[in-house]
Write a protein that binds this DNA or RNA. Structure first.
Lengths: 335, 335
DNA sequence: ATTAATGATGTAAGCACTTACATAAATTTG
DNA sequence: CAAATTTATGTAAGTGCTTACATCATTAAT
């Protein structure tokens, strides 16, 4: 069943059928009606590949994501897909893992698949250990690239992010204002936003003239689900004599580990230990006491990102950077 | 840059270039080398649309999922995508929500996009309230359909599932064996696997000659993240005078709510209240005490499902049903 | 050495659309 | 009412591949 069959049935040329299909102007209403009837009646549906070949686009954008099973990234992917589809685009998902070579390979795959644009979900796509962002710049020569929670100065690269620096800064300040100055900063990512968050924590100290201590900035190297690992990690720190009355975490899951650690050591939260997480995820209400956490309005971020993406693809002029600010949601793990 | 440019540069015909590109036999090694050199040198990459048009396939399979932000479904999508990609297929993700019309519309979208196959993630795609599975049968006439955790007898539909009936049955029995017979069964889905689980719970009672009581089978209508809602729901039941010494939940999140309820009411888990969840998710180790939960080997399921998918697409004969069994992972919310 | 069989390559016809351009029909204008 | 303009439709040339079939080169068999 092709456009030829329809054209014959309807007694018009294929061009007219194509015009009807594409909602082009200048088709007599009567003709249009007839063609639509035949299409309906035959259950015809145009061949997407042929269409793609002719238009050089299949209205598809690639979503690159290190690990869509991660709570936060999964949500991001979900919101992005929803918005893309609402805008008439298909989403091809591609989980890369955290290895740079895989990221590059996956990106190539998407470009070879001729996606209209690529959305990189999570700041781990830029500024890895080797600082190699060239692959993104190269890709941007082919299609517009959208970055979520990352910042890269490059033409045809559009960034939508939360001000993680400020959010983390404010979270730290909220603790300092309670006279807690031995805040353990716990993080598990050195990605772009990971760095921003760390800087936010540090700036809260320096702006309050409190000396920083590297001992209080701890990197947790376990997986994204290893709450027990975090708990043990903190036990180890305590055993080594590190004293802290607050844990500020770059992710809720780390904070959940801190809560567990507190319980294991009979520390009362928040009396003996204040805990703040990040992302305001499902884990927050699962913890006891419920976790205070920074919400960075992921849904808004994603909606804006897709707006920018679709706008760019429609040749509208779009801002290259959009920055939202986060907000500390207070629950019961802080005073 | 097309296959013509390459053929000119290499001094061969386009057919030969195509043959090299497709790894077809019967190309002189010398010619092959020359062509590959030119391709490499020009940075040529074949046009996927044209390829798709010629082959009537772009090696793409559609993933249909009600809500990929759900912990369990997100993992499923993740594993499926990983396996698909490893097998040389692209994954286009399509989140439908739980409304039947949206599901149908999304499925049509994927078929119009000419995917090679459709994977339906989560049993909520079959046997909804109206029992309307015809849309799946219709789709199966066009492409093979893969169902995760669902069972539908239909040619060209392949099902990969966990034996949720047995898993839930065994979980209930493990409680009954501890002399707990007032088990509150808490569920939030009436999908296919939701029904199977409920039946599993019921059969544990009947097989042990314990009378069933509808009061002890409670449906929670809140969102998939509303732990607090579950907690209040249970409080309400208690207030109404329902007594129960165990909660068996169809999802970890419900069980997390039960744990919270216990704490709020100064009930000791597991002494006063045993709790068992389902899916063995991240929430299990987040709860205090840690949650016993049924693990249904999602990674294995997904890997097998994709194997079946790719096998079918390669015209291999594949089993239409593959059933794995789950296993109760005991932690500290049960004795 | 001649024929037969096999291997390598080329030619050209799809695949199912879009769209520039040409032409025909309808409408407006003078 | 003819000419000019606008609107509607058709023709045909892309779009960049795959692949059946034809052809030519090479090797094996007689």
């Amino acid at each position: 069943m092709t456009i030829y069959d329809i054209s014959k049935q309807a007694g018009v040329s294929i061009a007219t059928v194509s015009r009807v299909l594409n909602g082009s102007a200048n088709v007599k209403p009567k003709t249009k009606k007839k063609v639509l009837e035949v299409i309906e009646q035959c259950g015809y549906t145009p061949n997407a590949f042929a269409r793609g070949l002719g238009l050089n686009s299949m209205n598809t954008v690639g979503i690159l994501c290190a690990d869509s099973s991660d709570l936060y990234l999964a949500k991001a992917v979900y919101y992005i897909e929803k918005n893309l589809r609402a805008g008439g685009y298909h989403a091809v998902l591609c989980c890369t893992g955290y290895d740079l070579e895989s990221k590059k390979a996956s990106l190539s795959l998407l470009l070879n698949q001729r996606v209209d644009s690529v959305i990189m979900v999570g700041s781990n796509f830029i500024e890895d250990e080797s600082g190699d962002n060239q692959y993104i710049r190269d890709a941007a020569e082919q299609v517009p690239i959208m970055l979520l929670n990352a910042d890269l100065d490059c033409s045809n690269v559009y960034c939508t992010m939360c001000d993680d620096f400020k959010s983390m800064h404010d979270a730290a300040v909220s603790l300092i204002n309670q006279e807690i100055t031995d805040i353990l900063y716990l993080y598990n990512s050195t990605s772009f936003s990971g760095k921003k968050k760390l800087l936010g924590y540090q700036s809260a100290y320096t702006m309050n003239n409190i000396p920083l201590n590297k001992q209080y900035q701890q990197f947790f190297a376990g997986t994204h689900e290893d709450i027990d690992g975090v708990c043990h990690f903190l036990n180890e720190l305590r055993r080594k004599g590190l004293e802290f009355h607050a844990v500020l975490a770059s992710e809720d899951m780390l904070a959940a580990g801190a809560i567990k650690y507190a319980r294991m050591n009979n520390l009362s939260v928040p009396d003996d230990l204040s805990v703040i997480g990040y992302n305001n995820s499902l884990l927050c209400t699962c913890c006891e006491p419920e976790l205070s956490s920074v919400d960075n309005h992921l849904e808004t971020l994603c909606s804006q990102l897709v707006k920018t993406c679709i706008g760019t693809l429609s040749n509208e002029e779009m801002p290259q950077k959009t920055i939202f600010s986060g907000e500390l949601v207070k629950r019961f793990s802080t005073k």
